[in-house]
Structure formats: structure tokens, C-alpha cells
């Protein structure tokens, strides 16, 4: 039942032997040891599992492994590091946004993709662009501040 898949994750090529229907999330977390995207719902309703697939913010909990092909997958830990942070990470750290932070892959990865598309979104565009993502701690005000700060940092 399992098949071999070659994935390009955070710039590295790696092989996973798994069920073709298995969501990418499980391969990242369990087979590749990248536990930074989280299981929130398995239904594409919350965003806790969000990664970039060829630059687009994608819910890895409903992305079958067989559909990934040789697309470039980037997770939160591949977005930036303490030595070389992504401006969105820097902005969220400076604003001290999250509480439990379990949701943050959704907000950070979606914001990074959003700001790639549009450098200076309006408040309404940010809200719309992040619509549907969940944060149970209610850190929405901080998220808005951080995305605006990141937008300024990205010039």
C-alpha cells in the first residue's frame, strides 16, 4: 500500500515511504521530524498546519502526499531562523503576539505569502487575507499589529 515519495522540503530533498493518501502534515511531522506545523483539525478549517507549497500558503492536513510532486515545500522552520529570520517572524517576535502559539503556522505562513503578493496591504486586505484562520487565545489585535510591522519592514 505504501509508495516512495521524494519531497523537496526546506531546500532539502528527502524520501518518504508512505500511503499516497496520507496528508503531507504527517510526513513532515513524523517521517521528516519537522514538528513545527501542527495538527489542528485535519479539515482545512483552522490553518495550524499551514506550509508553503511553491510559495502559496497551503493546509498540509488535507494535502495528499501524492499531490505534492516536486513542488518546493517550506515550513515555519524553513521560513527563517534566528540567524536569518523572515521579517514576518521578526515582527511577530517584536510584537510578542501569540499566547499558546499552536495556531501560529497559519498566521505566519499566510501573512508571509500575503505580503509576497502585496507589499502594502490595507487593514481590510490583511483581515480578508487572514480570514478563516483560527486563534483560540484571541491574539487577533497583536496579529494585525505584527503584519503591519512586517509590511513596513519589507519596505
Amino acid at each position: 500500500m505504501t509508495e516512495k515519495f521524494t519531497l523537496n522540503v526546506n531546500g532539502k530533498t528527502q524520501t518518504v515511504d508512505a500511503d499516497p493518501d496520507m496528508p503531507l502534515l504527517y510526513a513532515l511531522r513524523n517521517d521528516l521530524g519537522l514538528s513545527n506545523p501542527h495538527f489542528g483539525c485535519g479539515l482545512a478549517q483552522c490553518g495550524a498546519c499551514t506550509v508553503h507549497v511553491d510559495g502559496a500558503a497551503v493546509r498540509s492536513c488535507v494535502t495528499p502526499l501524492s499531490s505534492v510532486g516536486n513542488a518546493k515545500v517550506v515550513t515555519l522552520s524553513g521560513l527563517g531562523t534566528p540567524e536569518k529570520p523572515h521579517p514576518v517572524q521578526t515582527a511577530f517576535i517584536q510584537e510578542e503576539v501569540f499566547q499558546c502559539g499552536y495556531c501560529l503556522n497559519g498566521w505566519v505562513m499566510t501573512s508571509a505569502a500575503l505580503l509576497e503578493q502585496k507589499k502594502k496591504p490595507t487593514d481590510a486586505e490583511i483581515r480578508q487575507g487572514l480570514s478563516g484562520l483560527k486563534c483560540r487565545c484571541g491574539t487577533h489585535m497583536g496579529i494585525l499589529r505584527a503584519v503591519k510591522r512586517a509590511s513596513e519592514m519589507m519596505g
Binding site: S77, E96, L104
Partner: peptide, 19 residues
């Protein structure tokens, strides 16, 4: 004083119970 857990969470190096 800033929170101590934020940066690890943002860089994906923080261990949740799920990890």
C-alpha cells in the same frame, strides 16, 4: 520584560506536548 517562549515558537523550535 518580554516573554521567554515567543522566539522559539516563531522559529518552530518549541516543543509542544504534541511533539
Amino acid at each position: 520584560i518580554p516573554r521567554s517562549d515567543i522566539a522559539d515558537k516563531l522559529y518552530g523550535t518549541y516543543d509542544y506536548v504534541t511533539d
